[in-house]
């Protein structure tokens, strides 16, 4: 469950993050404003509160969502805000001359983004993104408060049944470590591969 949750949170979070980042650097004022508002609100409120609001609060206004959906929405919306900042910083770190060269050839803004800016940005994004994905994986533990049985809650339940806190929590900890290790390894490989294909 933790893996599934993390996977969807990463996919949706990255999508949200990309759009919010593009909105924030757009030349259209209203888009910039919406993007700013999004990151301001989401980053400014604890994820735990988001989840509780979505799960326990929304039913009072007539919206009842299954815990699984709430978990995915909560994690990806929250992750999206952080990822947006990472992507924005990545795009802004690309030399201005790159955009100029692209549009002076006759490319539109979106062509320049797709062909020139984003492919360069995404190489620089990998390290902070890897970091963010690991954070998301660990944050997925928070969904236990909305009665989802992910890794942490599974451990808690085990402990409640057999009263073996050391064994239960150490096992959960080791499982988290294994997952993050796998993740880190994948990202390190990716980074190395991209560095080679970059030619530098």
């Amino acid at each position: 469950m933790t893996i599934k949750l993390t996977f969807f949170a990463i996919v949706f979070g990255t999508l949200i993050g990309l759009f919010v980042a593009l909105a924030k650097i757009s030349s259209i004022k209203i888009l910039r404003w919406i993007g700013g508002l999004y990151t301001w609100i989401i980053r400014g409120i604890p994820l735990l509160l988001h989840l509780m609001f979505l799960y326990y609060g929304l039913p009072f206004v007539g919206i009842v969502l299954p815990e699984y959906t709430v978990g995915i929405i909560g994690l990806s919306v929250c992750g999206g805000a952080y990822i947006a900042e990472i992507i924005r910083a990545g795009i802004l770190s690309i030399d201005k001359g790159q955009m100029e060269a692209a549009i002076s050839m006759g490319m539109s803004y979106s062509q320049a983004m797709r062909r020139v800016i984003l492919p360069q940005a995404y190489r620089r994004l990998l390290p902070p993104m890897g970091n963010e994905f690991i954070t998301l994986m660990k944050d997925s533990a928070l969904v236990s408060v909305i009665t989802m049985t992910e890794l942490l809650r599974a451990a808690t339940l085990k402990n409640a049944t057999f009263f073996k806190p050391v064994e239960s929590f150490v096992t959960a900890g080791i499982l988290y470590l294994i997952m993050t290790t796998v993740f880190t390894t994948i990202f390190n490989r990716l980074e190395k591969r991209l560095a080679i294909s970059d030619g530098d």
């Binding site: 001359g97 790159q98 060269a101 002076s104 050839m105 020139v116 492919p119 360069q120 970059d198 030619g199």
Partner: peptide, 13 residues
């Protein structure tokens, strides 16, 4: 209109 820049601005990737 072709443009050539002081700092080349080739696409490094």
């Amino acid at each position: 209109i072709g443009m050539v820049f002081q700092r080349f601005n080739l696409f490094p990737h």
